[in-house]
């Protein structure tokens, strides 16, 4: 799958409280969570982000809590893909499990908010169309590719338990 869209950039250590503050965790309704996505980092983000756009961030994206509401909020806000230099491990698992596309790319530099990015999710190829620079994301291990191909962990478990036939 290929994505081409505008970028929103964030720095290092964007924690799950910034992505979705606990004051909104008395619901798990994705639309409601999306309204407050990244609110404590940038209160204007939820209002500005358009479906299909891309987040590019620094190190340790999604550190902190295990709240799945964080990737849910990002996904429901319409973000098509999150690219970060590195991800905190629970966020990484959660994103794959719920089918939010993510790419880990330690080499990504010089991408700025407003740049146009082209991303090939299968190949892990990232091109900054504004600067012409290209980057390659870390490949997923085969098991994770299987999870992603299944559309997330729910479908994977359904198949494994024979609820759905292959």
């Amino acid at each position: 799958m290929k994505i081409q869209s505008r970028v929103h950039c964030f720095g290092d250590d964007i924690d799950t409280d910034k992505i979705i503050p606990a004051r909104y965790l008395n619901t798990s309704d994705p639309a409601e969570l999306a309204r407050h996505c990244l609110e404590d980092e940038d209160p204007t983000f939820a209002g500005r982000v358009r479906p299909g756009e891309i987040i590019v961030a620094g190190e340790n994206f999604g550190c902190g809590s295990s709240r799945e509401h964080a990737p849910l909020a990002i996904k429901a806000a319409g973000v098509a893909c999150v690219i970060a230099k590195s991800f905190a491990r629970i966020f990484y698992r959660n994103a794959i499990n719920i089918g939010l596309p993510i790419l880990e790319c330690s080499a990504i530099e010089g991408v700025e908010t407003g740049h146009e990015l082209s991303v090939d999710l299968e190949r892990g190829e990232i091109t900054d169309l504004t600067t012409g620079r290209t980057y390659r994301a870390a490949p997923f291990p085969p098991f994770m590719k299987e999870l992603i191909a299944a559309g997330g962990l729910v479908n994977y478990v359904r198949r494994k338990l024979g609820v759905d036939k292959n």
Partner: peptide, 8 residues
């Protein structure tokens, strides 16, 4: 872990 992991 997250909630979907826990569900699994």
């Amino acid at each position: 872990v997250g909630s979907t992991d826990l569900a699994a």
